[in-house]
Write a protein that binds this DNA or RNA. Sequence first.
DNA 1: CCCCAGGCGGTTG
DNA 2: CAACCGCCTGGG
Length: 271
Amino acid sequence: MARAKRLCTAEEMDIVKTFECGQCFRWNVDSDGVYTGVSDGRQCKVWLESDTVYIDCEDKDEEYWRYYFDMETDYEAARRSLMISEYLSDCAEQGKGIRILRQEKWETLCSFIVSQCNNIPRIKSIVESLCENFGECRERNGEKYYTFPSALAMSTKRVEDLAVLRSGYRAAYILSAAEAVSLGTIDLEATSKKSGKEARATLRTINGVGEKVANCVVLFGFHHMDAFPVDVWIRRVLKERLPTDFKVEDLGEYAGLAQQYMFYSARSLGT
DNA sequence: CCCCAGGCGGTTG
DNA sequence: CAACCGCCTGGG
């Protein structure tokens, strides 16, 4: 690993939690605990070695990945701000080390459309198939990888072309999003700069994008840390673990991070 | 055979 | 408004 660079301490980022907490679908781990991922056409490897997280990437991509891993945000301060009750403190303790990645906007939109009514292994397999079938094949250190296909590339496809993905009724939703984005009906870059409320409303004009998916795109694709996606797990938490008068606004600017802590906690406890 | 999985859109009361 | 249902597919 000649190109290995130090990324951060193990405290600053728990790579297992960050990659496995359900925010991303293109990070895969090998038997040595090395994660390989692709974003914006670039591939890199990340692993933990004696309390330090290392990254192996192209030199020119180092800044890109530091930004992707949200290195400029102080997660310890954010985490402390969320410890406003015993339950939330427990979640924040369990979720310590989770970072909200700065993922590609179009990829995030497409991936969370695929996520609906699906489990994580299957979401990952559909997304990977999407890349292998419609993305670009590239190579790094003798290893092949596929880029996430552009909205423009997807807009030229028909529902029948997507049958190979086995994505079911979501195929039409993917094409609906691809059309809106490639035609410029929806400008993801501009939408990401609007308020969360406005951004969600814009995203919801896409057939197949409801409140949950729109919130995931705003949080994971636009990095609005106050976005709070409510899925079945969080619904259960809201009902069983939080006071009835609880308001998302009580969590402040890092509500989305709290959501990930609660989600991670609820899932790791099984049920 | 059944049910469910990190929803959405359309219909009905 | 809430409740319900069909939707593709794969896995238990």
